[in-house]
Design a protein around this nucleic acid. Structure first.
Length: 336
DNA sequence: GCGTATGATTCATG
DNA sequence: CATGAATCATACGC
């Protein structure tokens, strides 16, 4: 029953009472006529289903119907839509803009390869670490990112498709219904906007979770920096040689660090790390490093001896030892 | 598995 | 900003 009234757009017509408008629309029809029609419409709810159907049909065929419809549309526009109009403004959501920017920056939503590799390269640069396993992590990261990217795009497409499908469906429905109840094109437009808003909020969730996934991936990738990989033997040898031969002042200059880095195939900051760790650990437990110290002292001495022998010069290498760091005690077989 | 070694990170300091 | 100190987290050798 209630359906009938709603079908005729009478749901919220308690305040229809604008006789002037109706009169103007009726183009000189007697007001009595309008009153009759309204009376009939209102009475439909009290009739049986069959009676109501018949009445509806009769009213639909009434010559006044188009005029009445347009009036009802107008009234609806003024009341319902104006109420809704208050909450109409939707400024470009800062949240979604942030998400969009981030997805773009991470290379998830941008152009195919460029963004992705750029982000990965940036991450790799941030990692600033060993170039050997860097490529492995790099490709791993890229693969994961591509996966996220693919899911994101397929989901997005799905949403978009669903949105347009649903919009079409609703629009068709409303258009169809507009034959039986007063629906203005503006209202349809508004409904479409509402649907789009709803879908974009779903999209935002997708974007948000994608962002989260990227962040997790990224943090895991950056954490990989901590995945310690020992320097190769030759590198530690070079570093130790320098350290023990400069035990009095084991603070390599920037140039020295660069050279050491180049020799060892590591970065300058890794050299700094190494020396930082070495100094503190050496100082903390000199005894433990005694053996090592002697070993390298011998080694450098031998090297120096070789060099001087090659140069056929007898000046013994100066063992630089006079600084804050305690000297190793040389064992007899060290022969020094 | 466990203890130690070791590279990296963090935080305070000057 | 370089360094020291503490700490984290993994690698490595047993």
């Amino acid at each position: 029953m209630d359906d009938q009234t709603r079908m005729l757009g009478l749901g919220g017509l308690g305040d229809v009472g604008d006789p002037d408008a109706v009169r103007k629309q009726s183009l000189g029809q007697p007001q009595q006529d309008i009153g009759d029609i309204l009376q009939q419409i209102m009475a439909i709810t009290d009739e049986s289903l069959d009676e109501a159907q018949a009445r509806k049909h009769a009213l639909n065929c009434h010559r006044m119907k188009p005029a009445l419809f347009s009036v009802l549309c107008e009234i609806k526009e003024k009341t319902v839509l104006s109420i809704r109009g208050v909450q109409e403004e939707d400024p470009p959501d800062p949240q979604i803009m942030r998400l969009d920017n981030m997805l773009l920056a991470e290379g998830v939503s941008g152009p195919e390869k460029g963004g992705g590799s750029a982000a990965a390269a940036a991450a790799a640069a941030a990692a600033g670490g060993s170039p050997n396993d860097g490529s492995i992590e790099h490709s791993d990261y890229r693969a994961k990112l591509a996966q996220i990217r693919q899911i994101y795009h397929s989901e997005l497409e799905k949403y978009e498709q669903a949105c347009s499908e649903f919009t079409n469906h609703v629009m068709n429905l409303l258009r169809e219904q507009s034959r039986t109840r007063p629906i203005s094109p503006k209202e349809i437009e508004r409904m479409v906007a509402i649907i789009h808003r709803k879908f974009s909020s779903i999209q935002m969730q997708l974007k948000q979770s994608t962002c989260e996934a990227v962040m997790i991936l990224r943090s895991r990738f950056l954490d990989a920096r901590r995945k310690r990989r020992n320097f190769n033997k030759q590198a530690t040898e070079v570093l130790n040689e320098y350290f023990y031969s400069h035990l009095s002042n084991p603070y390599p200059s920037e140039e020295a660090k660069e050279e050491l880095a180049k020799k060892c195939g590591i970065t300058v900051s890794q050299v700094s790390n190494w020396f930082g760790n070495k100094r503190i650990r050496y100082k903390k437990n000199i005894g433990k490093f005694q053996e090592e110290a002697n070993l390298y002292a011998v080694k450098t001495a031998v090297d120096a001896a070789n060099v001087s022998a090659q140069a056929s010069q007898a000046n013994s290498p100066a063992t630089p030892n006079s600084g804050g760091y305690p000297a190793p005690c040389y064992t007899p077989d060290g022969r020094l």
